[in-house]
Amino acid sequence: MAERAATAVPEPEVHATSTGLSNVKLAMWAFLGSECLLFGALISTFLLYQGRSEGGPTPSKVYDIPFTSVSSFVLLMSSLTMVLALSAIQRRDEPKMRAWLMATALLGMTFIAGQVYEFTTFVNEGLSLTSSAFSSSFFLMTGFHGAHVTGGILLLLSLVGMSLDGRLPPERSETVELAGLYWHFVDIVWIVIFAAAYLIPTAT
């Protein structure tokens, strides 16, 4: 993000790249391709270890599926508010964009709050980071994801700040689009985690 933000020339010159595509957007997609392997490693570690929970409660014992379903839903809907923010700035409606960005950030915070609550409950029920191979891989995987969401929230809030400052005119809508790509990616990772780490292992 830092790369492109805030040069703030009102009308960016059209700069011809060899493919006609924007450098930053290419970089973002390459980064997301890389992140696939990062989360792949975390999820694989979890899949390998999820059956090894001697020393602590098993997944079926600690999971609260209704609760996690609600927070998954919250994160999913934050993707909607994110595209609505992009759509707003593409229609040059800055106040609406800020509103949707704030909504996205708030939904993200709700998700994180839910994760903090979930972690606390787990620890109270005897599932700490070191209880078992399952617990370590669970906390590492979901923690990495939570850190990504937190980074995304900071990003969204700085976009709102920049916009209030007049540094995010409609010509720079690509910045919002890139933030959106990151945000949606974090969302799809959760779609996978929710199915592969919550529902499938404990389904009877």
């Binding site: 595509l21 957007k25 290419l26 997609w29 997301l32 391709g33 992140e35 696939c36 392997l37």
Partner: peptide, 9 residues
């Protein structure tokens, strides 16, 4: 091109 980058990963 974007699709290829992501799908490769």
């Amino acid at each position: 091109i974007f699709r290829r980058l992501f799908v490769t990963g």
